[in-house]
Simulated scan of single mutants.
Amino acid sequence: MMSLDFLAGFTIFMLALIMVVSMVPGLLAGLQSSGIDYDAVAYRTGVILAEDPGWPVYPPWEMKTEAYKDEIERMGLAASKDTPNILLSTKVDAFFNYTFFTEDDYRSKAIFGDVPYSYNFSLQSDTGIKQVGDTPPSGYGYIRRAVKIKEPGVANIGYNSSFNETTLDASKPRVFTVRLNFSQLLDPSVGPAYRIDPRTEPVNITITEFGAYLNRTDNPGENATLKDVTFWKMDPTMPMPRFTKIPFSYNTMDPDLYTLFLDGTPNDLVPGTNVSDNISLVLKPAATSIFTLDQNSILDIRFTFDDDPQRTFMNGTYLYDYDNVTCPPLKPAVLEVAIW
């Protein structure tokens, strides 16, 4: 009889002991060291920055102006969700613009924590270091990641560049067109790390050796007049497709949307100015986002030269594609995140 009582008591004691032991880790959870917590937050933040493109994706978050900054939910730096550790240069430039983002913006859109963490973000490459945040004290959480930066391509159009020249009457204006076929540029067979996407990267067009296109024989010493630069779009999938001019503030200089330099001097898109040596146009993603372009669109950028008589024979269509655009190699860099 006593052995049965002893067995029952011992069983109850062991069950109680097991319950107490299982509850102890939960009771001590709030006593874990803060360093481990900071390391976890730093690791999570590093994953968001290096592996996530952020949200919204298109139009991408880095295009948002002050009036629409509240629409930004995450500030990821990856070129796409399929390219972890490959950062897009336009996202990097926007992220490290500490005059645009506040401390609360970095906490709510990159760190994501109820605690008001302090932080230091840095990105070091061969061109220097970008940094935002305070100097870390002792005992902070830290993560370091090897990444690469994707830079936008450039169409360098020189005298020997090939394009489809069009013969016109000597009295008619010369129209040089740079054509972007989005169905070719956004071809899924091209990996995101090497894809030319004008919706998220600047369209960079540089015309050098322009003097070689001038009609020096009939007009020695005279330069051609760039009348205007206009944008036209077409959707080939529509019935009876045709190019239509895109409404735009052509006579307003807006560096957030584009830059146009003629012989090194900034101009708007209706310059009516002589040009002798070079033309540089950078159309930024903020501009293409308001053009409502999709994967089926064709975008024409038309440079119109008009003189009497015509002083240049630069006329025809140049394809902005993978054969003609020089894409820089991916640039190695180191991303560091410190949280405390």
Rank of each mutant, 00 (worst) to 15 (best):
I290T: 12
I36D: 15
S280Y: 04
P188F: 06
F112K: 04
L293A: 09
S89Q: 10
E336C: 06
Y43Q: 09
P173D: 03
W340Q: 15
D39M: 02
N267C: 12
A286C: 01
S125A: 07
I111T: 08
L281K: 05
L283F: 07
Y194T: 14
T217E: 13
K284H: 00
R311T: 02
I339P: 03
A42R: 07
E151T: 11
W340Y: 12
T83V: 03
G139Y: 00
T244Y: 12
D263K: 03
L77T: 02
S161M: 04
Q310Y: 02
G221F: 05
L180R: 02
S80G: 10
K91F: 12
G158H: 06
M14S: 13
A42S: 10
S3K: 10
S89G: 08
P329C: 00
P271D: 07
P285N: 01
K148I: 03
V282L: 11
S162E: 09
I143H: 14
V229S: 02
D256I: 09
L186F: 04
T230W: 00
S280E: 12
R107V: 00
F261I: 04
N164V: 00
L168I: 12
S183W: 00
K150I: 08
S125H: 11
P137D: 07
M23K: 11
E209K: 00
A193L: 00
Y98E: 13
V92L: 02
G316T: 03
V334F: 05
D294Y: 06
Y250D: 00
G128C: 09
T265P: 01
P329S: 13
L88M: 11
I143F: 12
P239S: 14
P220A: 11
F10Y: 11
Q32H: 06
G30N: 15
E73D: 11
Y258T: 03
G272E: 07
G76P: 05
L293E: 06
S171Y: 14
K148Y: 08
F6P: 00
Q184C: 08
L214G: 06
D268E: 04
M75V: 05
G272R: 09
T166V: 15
R107K: 08
F13G: 00
L226V: 05
M63W: 12
V47T: 12
N97A: 04
